[in-house]
């Protein structure tokens, strides 16, 4: 069985698997990262480390909505970095098998697969693609 943490970006539901997440931070104080591109919302002080915050909806092309007051801090394999999302949903447990998971259509949309959960479409976020996207972004804004 797999545990998923679903969250909303605009009107769409995305999800991460629990092992991909280090912590969920409530009411974070986000500090400006001067000179950084808009998609980087800033940085937080996370257990003594400076962890950059990615404005995920903006990065994936969703309109600027009401950002939720929680951040998802990814596990160290993909980080450290924190994702800012629109809204968080309750954790769900299901079996992620090939039948439930249909492959994503495009390679650049940061989606690992799509599942239909009781009528609701949930996209699994592809962190490797996300990281590649961020690397490109930082290289473009590099000095």
């Amino acid at each position: 069985m797999n545990q998923l943490l679903p969250f909303k970006l605009g009107t769409e539901v995305y999800a991460l698997e629990l092992p991909e997440i280090q912590e969920v931070v409530e009411n974070p104080q986000i500090h400006d990262l001067p000179g950084a591109p808009e998609t980087l919302a800033g940085a937080i002080a996370f257990h003594g480390r400076i962890v950059p915050v990615v404005d995920l909806p903006l990065l994936l092309g969703f309109p600027a909505g009401n950002r939720f007051d929680r951040l998802i801090v990814l596990s160290d394999r993909h980080g450290p970095m924190a994702l800012w999302i629109d809204q968080m949903c309750p954790i769900m447990t299901l079996n992620l098998s090939h039948e439930t998971l249909s492959q994503s259509s495009s390679e650049a949309d940061c989606i690992r697969g799509v599942l239909n959960c009781r009528g609701e479409i949930i996209s699994l976020l592809d962190l490797d693609q996300l990281q590649a996207k961020l690397e490109q972004l930082c290289a473009e804004n590099g000095g």
């Binding site: 950084a36 400076i50 970095m81 000095g143």
Partner: peptide, 15 residues
Amino acid sequence: PAPFDRLRGNNGGAI
């Protein structure tokens, strides 16, 4: 942390 260390004008920070 990488890749953010490559951003222009950023030499790190302090808490």
